[in-house]
Amino acid sequence: MDIQIRNLTKSYGGHRAVDDISFDVRTGEVLGFLGPNGAGKTTTMKMITNFLLADEGRIEINGRAIDDGWAKQHIGYLPEHNPLYDEMPVIDYLAFCAALQNVDKSDIPSRVKEMVRICGIDTMKHKKISELSKGYRQRVGLAQAMIHNPDILILDEPTSGLDPNQIVEIRELIKNLGNEKTVILSTHILPEVEATCDRILIINKGKIVADGTANTLRKQAQGQQVLRIKIQAPDNQVVADALQLIPQVRTVEIVDFGSGRFELQSEPEVHSNEAVFHLCASKGWVLTEMIPYETKLEDIFRDLTMN
């Protein structure tokens, strides 16, 4: 199912938590929601899940406004902090969630069984939720979100509290789900977005500051290629001057004059690797290092959200 969000605004006592946000999510897309704490990620998710009402703007799913709550049964939601009924045994809880989501009474046991299998909570299924470790709680949270096989999954920090192995499993799971479902997930862990999401949305202070795949964001943030090189030559000043004369090179920055380290920024859309190599070859200099430097998602994130 497709989600369309138009001019969504929500204020808490004069503070605009979400400020005129518009974006679309398509079926089969995993959208990563990034942003510093308090940026409005959770508020946006709460509005999509119909928990909060928007002050302004509209949310549509398959072209139909969600105001009357019709879409709830198509949405699976894992809230932040993963609240659960501590006193309930795991399978009772999952059966309760299934019944609330209008799963056919005859299908409930098989759905519960399947979720227990997919989320790997088989050994814990008869325990009370209060007895579970954080990782298992998180799995129960995921299981309840998917119990009715929803078309849309909204996951607020799905991997928090999991150990590295579990994180990989859950990411794998989300990726597979993303093939046929619409998934929106929020996280603070940047490599996670790269690993699981088709598209990234960075929001800051309630506004969208970036929207695209990890690659397009990189391109936007850093138009030119950056090379870090180290050259062994008799006179480093000569090297610096010669590098500056390469047509593809825009600027040369001397990082460490003594050891011959330079940072080259290329002209837009071209690479300078070959030219640098040929220059060194023709002059007989030894090129000991050449590192094409990619802007990290962390840097983009920091650029966009710190002012």
């Binding site: 709460k46 899940t49 119909n50 928990f51 709550g69 709830k72 049964q73 949405i75 939601y77 809230p79 902090h81 609240p83 659960l84 009924y85 501590d86 969630c97 609330l100 989501q101 209008n102 309840q144 009715h148």
Partner: peptide, 14 residues
């Protein structure tokens, strides 16, 4: 208090 209200109300219930 426990936040389960949010989970409950985002299920298919009014």
């Amino acid at each position: 208090r426990s936040g389960t209200m949010e989970l409950l109300l985002t299920k298919n219930v009014t």
